[in-house]
Design a protein around this nucleic acid. Structure first.
Length: 271
DNA sequence: ATGCGGACCTGTTAGC
DNA sequence: TGCTAACAGGTCCGCA
């Protein structure tokens, strides 16, 4: 489900409801996520407060006392703020019960998401330590992409979706930013010019920021932590528009498979 | 080091 | 209607 804008939208949506209220309990109904939910999570969090929620890549970092809960939504995960009397559904695997009478509910039908607990620096966690720069920070530049891509033969779309290169660019926004930058997704990363990478870096930022501004993209069932769908779907210019006219030139958008993922591009604009 | 395919899961939809 | 196959917003791991 979520790419960076959806994770960020979730973070902003839930923060006011989960910060500064005591965590009374954690109910784990299903611990078999991508990795097992740590048994020590309950003891570590009970009686404490979340005092900050940050995002690194698509991970949400919940600071609590001496440690940090690291949570990933995977492909189908969502976090929602619900009231105490809301009955859990089949895939509502974890509830964080707050003194305020609300709960933070983690749902994940496919169970590709995960929850971790660390008392060390979260940036040093094995899942975070090899991540590339944030796309909305200062680390993503045309020069950087250009330098990292020299000699690489893989498709530029796969290159920008590699979290060691840059984080947060998922399947939707990879197609969108390449379309905006007029770069064909299947081009070898090592053969993309510095000027093209300059545009691409700019467009990645622009697309992600625009999507955050619209509350993310709801394709099927994404909602923010408080139930609002994302409205960026109507702004998509390539993704899921196969056969429809390119909004820049009128040519028909094409779809191909790249790295087992659906990919959309304009054969005229993108070279 | 790089790049690829397989793996982890369930739900929905398209096609026969 | 029912069955099957393909596909879905992610990303880790192991192998060549």
């Amino acid at each position: 489900m979520p790419e960076l804008p959806e994770v960020e939208t979730t973070r902003r949506g839930i923060a006011p409801h989960v910060l500064g209220t005591a965590i009374e309990d954690i109910l784990v109904r299903e611990r078999r996520l991508r990795w097992p939910v740590p048994g020590k999570l309950r003891g570590a969090l009970r009686g404490r407060c979340f005092d900050r929620i940050e995002r690194r890549a698509k991970y949400l970092l919940f600071s609590a006392g001496p440690g940090c809960m690291i949570l990933h939504l995977g492909m189908s995960g969502s976090l929602r703020v619900v009231t105490d009397n809301a009955a859990p559904g089949k895939h509502d695997h974890v509830d964080f019960v707050f003194a305020s009478g609300r709960r933070l509910r983690f749902r994940d039908p496919r169970r590709f998401g995960s929850i971790h607990w660390t008392t060390a620096d979260p940036a040093a966690h094995r899942l975070l330590k090899n991540l590339g720069p944030e796309p909305l920070g200062t680390g993503l530049t045309g020069d950087y992409l250009h330098a990292r891509s020299r000699g690489r033969t893989q498709a530029v779309k796969n290159f920008i979706m590699d979290s060691r290169i840059v984080v947060g660019v998922g399947n939707i926004y990879a197609s969108e930013s390449l379309h905006a930058a007029r770069i064909r997704p299947q081009r070898a990363a090592g053969r993309v010019s510095r000027a093209d990478y300059e545009r691409l870096a700019d467009e990645i930022r622009a697309v992600l920021n625009a999507a955050i501004g619209k509350g993310g993209t709801t394709l099927r069932d994404f909602t923010s932590g408080v139930g609002e769908p994302g409205y960026f779907r109507t702004e998509l210019r390539a993704y899921e528009r196969a056969g429809e006219p390119c909004l820049a030139c009128g040519a028909r958008i094409r779809t191909i498979r790249l790295g087992q993922r659906s990919t959309f591009y304009c054969p005229n604009c993108q070279r």
